[in-house]
Amino acid sequence: MNLLELLGYFNYWVFAIVLMVGLYTVIAKINLVKKLIGLSIFQSAVFLMYITMDKVEGGTAPIILKGMEGNVFSNPLPQVLILTAIVVGVSTLALGLAIVVRIYESYGTIEEDEILDAD
């Protein structure tokens, strides 16, 4: 097993671990801000998965400058998808935080169990 192969598996394992750390934070933590932090870790893990598959051995970033036409380039498509996904992620987060701020204003707490008790 050469190093690149190891890194390949390692990337996917890191993806799996980080994904689960994020999901665990979302499900198990009861603080709403912490849940959102978990959500953003969870999404970042998926970005890592997509970007991992774009790599080509010996490739460079897909910017074809003059005189470089024969080079090997990494795959541009996953990059485009993840650019979109990153922006989607920050949008969701902003909306979530706005809701958290309003929850704090109306309930005086951002802990899920205390909110449930209040109603």
Binding site: L19, L23, V26, L32, K35, L36, L39, F42, Q43, V46, M49, Y50, M53, P78, A85, T92, L95, G96, I99, V100, R102, I103, S106, Y107, E112, I115, L116, D119
Partner: peptide, 23 residues
């Protein structure tokens, strides 16, 4: 507000699962 927060979290998890599958 708590209702929509729950929807937001679960909806985002759903969408991200879909994204993993598509990936």
């Amino acid at each position: 507000l708590p209702a929509v927060f729950k929807y937001l979290v679960m909806g985002t998890i759903g969408a991200t699962f879909y994204l993993i599958g598509v990936g």
